[in-house]
Amino acid sequence: MIGSLGLKLARFAVVLSVFALWEVLSRTGMVNPRLLPSASDTIAMLGQLLQRASVRSDLAVTASEVAVAFVLAVPCGALIGFAIAENRYFAEVAKPLLFFAFSIPKSIFLPMFILVFGVGFSQKVGFAFFSTIFIVIMSTTVAVDSVKTEYLTVARSYGATTAQTAFRVYLPSMLPVLLETVRISMIFNLTGVLLAEMYASRDGIGHQIATWGENFQMEQLLAGVLMIAIIAMTFNELVRWVETRCSHWRT
């Protein structure tokens, strides 16, 4: 077995060499620096951008859209998923349909969201909600199915009420899958908001990044990409950390 420290060092080395390659390609002119500004310049630009009030307010707008869409989509999806999983007839009817719906690229519906909601906050939230809810529904049905009947029989034989069964059997049993759902749905959610912002918007960091791209401001564009990547990875790792703490028993 390879030591976990060794693995971490190897991973770090990979990341470092990507950045080093980026720096070298740009500095030596092997790739036109106007097309690919150097890594160090991009990171410096990232620092500058974070100082700018306009960028910060864009980030705030995006964050609030993401938060609202997330807070709406996850519980709604979870409830629908639960209802489907717990009702056999519902499940038989709905499950294949959900798979069909899930296979459609959500982005083609974006123009319709603009027609219905106009360009603004509700368009972003609406589209992100739509992008997210299917994966939440599907994952929740999987989570419910992961609750073993034996657990429910045990709870019943010891006289558990419906509420006790929900909170003491369903919830802890589903928790690892649910956390995974939260993590994956955030990826869909963030993608939805950014896509909606880049497509048609007046503010938000996605809009800003699209604008930088159109104006050929490569340094800003790449700094923006780095920023989003760091934010997304941080959230992802945070949930994964909670996941490993809550699902130590899943082996």
């Binding site: 034996e150 045990v154 019943r156 034989s157 049993s173 028993w249 899943r250």
Partner: peptide
């Protein structure tokens, strides 16, 4: 109905809750 006051049950599968 199940009456834990009068009856304890041990199942074939250990059916312990793995998170406890």
């Amino acid at each position: 109905a199940p009456d834990p006051d009068r009856i304890g049950v041990v199942f074939q599968e250990p059916s312990l809750f793995p998170w406890l």
